[in-house]
Amino acid sequence: MSPSSWKSRLFRHETLLLLVLVAEWVFFYHYGTTTNRRGVVVGFGTLDRQFDILRHSCEIGLLALALTPVILTAGIDLSVGSLLGLCAILFGKLWHDGGLPVPFAAGLTLLIGAVAGGLNAGLITGLRLPPLIVTLGTYSLFRGLAEAITHGAITYTDFPAGFLFFGQERWLGLPTQAWLFAAVALGVWLLVHRSVFGRSFRAAGYAPEGARYAGLPVERRVALVYILAGVIAALAAIIYTARLGQAKADAGTGYELFAITAVVLGGTSIFGGSGSVTGTLLGVAAIAVLKSGLATLPAVIRLNAAEEIAGLLTGALLLFALAAGPLLRRLTTLLPRRSRSPQAR
């Protein structure tokens, strides 16, 4: 059984990304770990720092997982970051002002996420509006609603310790939210790679008309990915609130762009059809390690510009990852034909 060419190409992209991730890790371990005056090891090479990276990547990671099926259908959802903010303050309001117990409020928040995702889905599949425009609209709408509800000033705090456990404590040795994240990642992986739904996402992404002619319910499938994105964004909002212990209207500002970057870095084609959940996870990790690692470099600390350099390097990494594919292909076409043909026997 010979691996098909697209499979091996995907494999190569993920391998490449894994190598980048390992290189980042080794680099920061080497240059970002120091011993302070009291002889305590600080910086990148500590378990605390590693857990910190994990905690911080959960929310953007969840959004990236939400966006992977969306982008597979050749769509986009710019509203997930704003929806995170809206869900965070609605969750806070339901618990604080509504007096609902936390599990109840959380459940309702997930439902709100589904409804918000359903709004995107309805506009995109019902009215056939372009996803970019629809979610650009709801991107402003959701954030605006969040600001309006809080008047831009209210922050909900004083959540019970049992709730903060999900964002600040450990369970079975790992940060609690990492387990939630892993569960969602497994779920999305099963959906995308092992179910007929994932198959139809790809078909719709490659050729929506072709999928329709094959009798696939393209509209319903596409609607599903946006609704799912809404639910996952709501879950990210709850975890975010649990990590910071507060819910405010500007939660998750700009997260959608980091999430899209992670998905594309992970090898998912922005034109739809091809991509993988594993790639997305590697993309999230590569960005998270880069951001967190830079903050541990003495040179960067002295400059006090970790954020800026992280942005710069993330951009460079993304462009490199995007250019690598076409460049490799161009190189292989320059080589003798023999090297491109599938296995001889």
């Binding site: 198959r199 050729a207 094959a214 059809g273």
Partner: peptide, 23 residues
């Protein structure tokens, strides 16, 4: 444009209309 999805493998194209029965 309509008959096949060029980027999908042969096997996935062949089963595209029988998902319910096959899976």
């Amino acid at each position: 444009r309509h008959g096949v999805i060029l980027e999908l493998p042969i096997e996935q194209n062949l089963t595209l209309a029988v998902h319910r029965r096959l899976f």
